[in-house]
């Protein structure tokens, strides 16, 4: 490789990089969508939903992914401000480190909406859209307890808890206890399993709990991404049975991903608390529209979510993002 070839290659690269944006800048509004990663189905679905919805509204989307790097995300926000976007949708990694970015957007007069994760308290102005984790979990567990009451008997419950550094995980845990504390006659909590949002930790924790309490028959997970590990642990304990079969464990999940959908459809799950991705995306973009229109928008906009159970399965599944993922994967 000599210098001429090197330069040629670099030129080619630069030109190739320039091509996709040839048809740029026809939309009336340009939105920067800034995620910190695309590491789980939830974020990928959200990202795709933004793409679709923004195109639907005739706007243009600029994507930025920071790879969990706060400094880089801040620089990306600055780039987008210099680029003169009309609005910023952001998923930050760190609630504190995002504050200078909000300030920068404030200074430039560009509205900013946090998708699914609110920032830390500060004097900077932005809007956060978030699932109402506690309420959704409450509704989900309520559905599961009703099922339990219908079948009768006493239940020994286990809860898989997320990383307690994450506000969402805390809210889900609290939503769980809101319900079971009211129904101590039906449900007794025998295991609280800390997962730290780590699949291996979750598997080990659940396996231990099932050995210590072989009669666990009521299980709630704070996130659907743990389903493969839960299925494995229950199989090992001989407790992986469908609804209506002997030994079925009453089982509820949270998020509404494609794993949750598949297990609900197959009859292993009894309820899933769904974060309504499509609703949240709509809420986010509406908030931007409202701010452009000069309307007052609340700091926190909640997605009430919904609970999907075998009883409303047919009518609700089209709103469940995991179903769409599942459908695209399974034809």
């Amino acid at each position: 490789m000599n210098r001429r070839e090197f330069t040629k290659a670099a030129l080619l690269g630069a030109v190739a990089a320039g091509l996709p944006i040839a048809s740029f800048a026809q939309g009336s509004r340009t939105i920067a969508v800034m995620f910190d990663s695309l590491q789980s189905p939830f974020w990928i679905s959200s990202f795709d939903a933004f793409k679709a919805e923004i195109a639907e509204r005739g706007w243009t989307m600029l994507e930025n992914i920071s790879n969990l790097d706060d400094s880089r995300q801040f620089q990306q926000v600055q780039s987008m401000i210099e680029r003169g976007v009309d609005g910023i949708v952001i998923v930050q990694t760190d609630a504190n480190a995002v504050i200078p970015a909000i300030r920068a957007a404030n200074a430039a007069g560009i509205p900013m909406v946090h998708y699914n994760r609110p920032p830390a308290e500060s004097d900077a102005k932005s809007v956060a859209v978030q699932a109402d984790n506690r309420t959704i979990m409450r509704d989900t567990v309520t559905a599961l307890v009703e099922e339990a009451k219908k079948q009768g008997g006493k239940y020994k419950a286990a809860l898989l808890i997320g990383d307690l550094g994450d506000q969402n995980a805390i809210a889900r845990r609290d939503g769980f206890f809101d319900v079971v504390d009211q129904n101590t006659d039906t449900v007794e909590v025998v295991a609280r399993i800390a997962t730290e949002w780590n699949a291996d930790v979750a598997f080990a924790g659940l396996t231990n709990a099932l050995q210590a309490n072989p009669d666990i028959n009521f299980l709630v997970t704070s996130s659907d991404f743990l389903h493969p590990q839960i299925e494995q642990a229950l199989k090992v304990a001989g407790k992986w049975h469908k609804r209506g079969e002997e030994g079925h464990v009453l089982f509820a999940g949270f998020d509404g991903d494609e794993g949750g959908y598949a297990r609900l459809a197959d009859g292993y799950l009894d309820a899933v608390g769904v974060q309504n991705v499509f609703f949240e995306v709509d809420l986010t973009l509406n908030a931007l529209q409202d701010m452009w229109d000069g309307k007052e928008v609340d700091d926190l906009l909640l997605d009430p979510g919904f609970v999907i159970t075998p009883y409303n399965f047919e009518e609700k599944r089209d709103e469940m993002w995991g179903y769409l993922v599942w459908k695209s994967q399974n034809g």
Partner: peptide, 9 residues
């Protein structure tokens, strides 16, 4: 710049 002390700076 980030107004934050973070271990993953």
């Amino acid at each position: 710049r980030l107004e934050t002390g973070t271990p993953v700076l």
